[in-house]
Computed example of a mutant assay.
Amino acid sequence: MEKNKPLIHTLTVGMPKELVDSKGRSMITGIEKQRVQEVYLSSQGFEGDDVADKKHHGGPDRAVCLYPTEHYIQWEQELGKTLPVPAFGENLTVTNMLESDVCIGDIYKIGDAVIQITQGRIPCSTIDRYTEANTLLKRLIETGYTGFLARVLEEGTICADSTIELVEKHPARISVLYCNEVYFKNNDAIAMKQIQAVDALAEDWKEKLEKRIQVLQRKVMS
């Protein structure tokens, strides 16, 4: 087996349902997913998988959620406890696909499907509530270890033991980690424009960055 070849650690899907946290607070969320051996991936996402908050999650640009296995070790050490897999609502927990190496626009063939990376994941408070760890969301943002999302270029079946092949590296070579650092620091209009210029970037990110660029430019002018 090739060294550092991307691999599927777990393949999971799940529908939104009610979850009650340790404080008795109820939420409807799709974060809890179950392992499957085989599932079909369409342009809208995996069969048997959905999100509750359609405004902030899901849609064609965010059809697949991936999270690097390697980060679990760090989070479990920091939190002093074992996390469920998946802890972040990801469909694919993957090895050898870190945010520092994966770039916006990169194209991967996974099983019969082909996906393209579109954006870093913007984590929400559901992660803290689901994992019962009130520092995890903050740490994901601080480190940029958010995982990432993808659109589907070719639909097809993915199995738990399917291979992951890099089909094409995007020429801009703008990593997910770099995007996260720029996005969460929110003070570099030039870097934002550089990210915004990547054709494969999710439309939602293009719009968010445009608003931020305009705010920064008004500050400079005032």
Rank of each mutant, 00 (worst) to 15 (best):
P60V: 11
D61L: 10
R62N: 14
R62P: 02
R62E: 14
A63H: 09
A63D: 12
C65N: 14
L66E: 05
Y67P: 06
Y67L: 10
Y67F: 15
P68C: 00
P68F: 02
T69M: 13
E70M: 06
H71E: 14
Y72W: 11
I73T: 15
I73V: 15
W75K: 09
W75T: 10
W75F: 15
W75G: 09
E76T: 12
E76Y: 11
Q77Y: 06
Q77T: 14
Q77C: 09
E78N: 13
L79V: 09
G80A: 13
G80T: 13
G80Y: 09
K81P: 10
K81Q: 14
L83H: 10
P84H: 11
V85M: 12
P86D: 06
A87I: 05
F88I: 13
G89T: 05
G89K: 11
G89H: 08
N91V: 07
V94G: 00
V94D: 00
V94L: 00
T95K: 10
N96D: 07
N96M: 00
N96V: 01
M97P: 01
M97C: 03
M97Q: 04
L98S: 09
S100M: 13
V102K: 02
V102M: 01
V102N: 00
C103T: 07
I104V: 15
I104A: 09
I104D: 07
G105T: 09
G105Q: 09
G105C: 11
D106S: 07
I107S: 01
I107N: 01
I107R: 02
Y108H: 05
Y108V: 02
K109S: 12
K109T: 13
K109H: 04
I110E: 03
G111E: 04
D112Q: 15
D112I: 06
D112R: 07
A113S: 13
V114W: 03
I115F: 00
I115K: 04
I115S: 04
I115P: 05
I115L: 08
I115N: 02
I117V: 15
T118W: 01
T118F: 04
Q119G: 08
R121Q: 10
P123W: 08
P123V: 08
